[in-house]
Design a protein around this nucleic acid. Structure first.
Lengths: 152, 152
DNA sequence: TGCTGATAGTCAGCATACTGACCAATATCC
DNA sequence: GGATATTGGTCAGTATGCTGACTATCAGCA
């Protein structure tokens, strides 16, 4: 009988579990209260000022029903702003606040450190190869999830 | 500025997202309503009859507060049974039911198919290398999450 | 034996993720 | 121009996962 740990699905879940734990630990130690999901959203808002929620969701492959709550929390923490768009009254335009910019800047070392730690069992070459293979598998499976990655 | 998609944490989340979607699609198409988490728990109960919840959690690296709900749902679906242990009155012993055994048997093709699909972008050699690298990274990070993998 | 610490399980609360439904607004097509 | 389809956002409901707290029970040691 096949062992659980030989199934890519199980390895995926476990690696993600560790990645989140490491991220929260590093960021928490640096004195910030931000989840991986919130960090990615905030960084993407900063890089694309004024984008709407569906575009944001596509850029980081979140479901649009998930983005609602994530943006809620960023706004509630004073890191981002949400306002109605004038071009399309259905849409909400997102902006990062000064506080959000400051947080992003100061949190970066912890985030980078987290990425190192979650790969600490691998050599530099192995880490690079893992990233390449994940990229490739993800690209091939992009359309299989309800929230595929979308280009601008 | 570093792209999100160059961060192992982001790749981990995305790969796991696709893995779950593929699993649910394949299993659903086969006519079953079972999540990846429930499947792993059920298979582990079958392989270790009479084990308690903490042991089960350790074998598949779930948090013990998560296992409660997962077992609830397995029991509710008639796939597993939970009864008080006589040796330790704090513990609950878990058993798979005949229905659970039947479900596991009939669901296996869909589960294996899902594992293929989520790696369909990779050659056989690449898939094997991805598994090896994930294994290695996970082993090194095992103690970093609240729910590490535990041997029997 | 009796105290103390550890352990099994549960619960409340929060944050992803998803399904499916819904409303309001915009696009498209005849 | 008007019916129709599509899109942006939200909501209710469900299932992981986690933190931290709590109860009941067990284990170890003075």
């Amino acid at each position: 009988m096949k062992d659980n740990s030989d199934m890519p699905g199980h390895l995926a879940r476990r690696f993600q579990q560790i990645a989140v734990a490491v991220f929260l630990a590093e960021v928490g130690q640096a004195g910030f209260d931000l989840t991986p999901v919130q960090y990615a959203a905030l960084a993407t808002i900063k890089a694309n000022p004024g984008l709407d929620q569906v575009t944001l969701a596509g850029l980081i492959a979140y479901d649009r029903t998930t983005i609602t709550g994530v943006v809620d929390r960023l706004v509630q923490k004073g890191l981002a702003e949400r306002r109605a768009s004038r071009r399309d009254r259905r849409a909400r335009e997102l902006e990062i606040t000064d506080e959000g910019r400051r947080t992003l800047r100061r949190i970066t070392p912890a985030v980078e450190s987290a990425q190192q730690i979650m790969l600490r069992g691998l050599s530099a070459k192995e880490a690079e190869e893992l990233m390449r293979l994940l990229h490739k598998a993800i690209a091939a499976g992009n359309e299989l999830s309800r929230a595929p990655l979308r280009e601008m």
